[in-house]
């Protein structure tokens, strides 16, 4: 069945079964491989994208539920959150890197909602994103740095 989706500010046509999760639409049908498969059940957060600005698990969203929704993936995160990308690189957060797209999308949604999150707020917002390499302490640090930079550049105003 054909669907029209809004992905990263672009309208795209996808022909897929109605129960196809957004994750596989992105990866198999659109070639946007930045969002990762980690568990298929919403436990790990590796597939996190934004739907209308909120962090969601793309493995849990069938294509049939996306009508009229705006989806943002890691591939275009730098347009809204260049500070987050910069802090992530400078802090050398990633180890293997597989979960990091999901981590970044969750972190971006957090900063959209809270300009200066505390460690507790970070832990609460990021608890759905597993990192098996254990980069958590750097994730906290990078979010703080990005928040500070967004304020100083006026990006979060």
């Amino acid at each position: 069945m054909a669907y029209t989706l809004k992905i990263n500010e672009q309208l795209v046509e996808v022909d897929a079964a109605s129960d196809t999760p957004l994750l596989w639409v992105l990866r198999d049908h659109l070639g946007l491989t930045g969002s990762k498969y980690g568990c298929g059940s919403g436990y790990c957060g590796s597939c996190t994208v934004h739907m209308d600005g909120s962090a969601v698990r793309s493995c849990q969203l069938p294509i049939s539920s996306l009508d009229g929704r705006a989806i943002t993936t890691i591939e275009s995160l730098d347009k809204q959150h260049p500070q987050l990308i910069g802090a992530w690189v400078r802090e050398n957060v990633a180890q293997c890197g597989y979960c990091q797209a999901g981590q970044l999308m969750s972190a971006a949604a957090l900063l959209n909602a809270s300009a200066h999150p505390t460690d507790q707020e970070i832990d609460a917002a990021m608890t759905g994103n597993i990192c098996r390499c254990g980069t958590y302490v750097r994730i906290r640090s990078a979010i703080h740095h990005a928040a500070a930079e967004r304020t100083s550049t006026g990006a979060s105003e």
């Binding site: 969002s35 890691i74 050398n92 990633a94």
Partner: peptide, 12 residues
Amino acid sequence: VHVDAEAITRGQ
């Protein structure tokens, strides 16, 4: 900083 950090962080 790791050589792959930038590409990883941009989902590339």
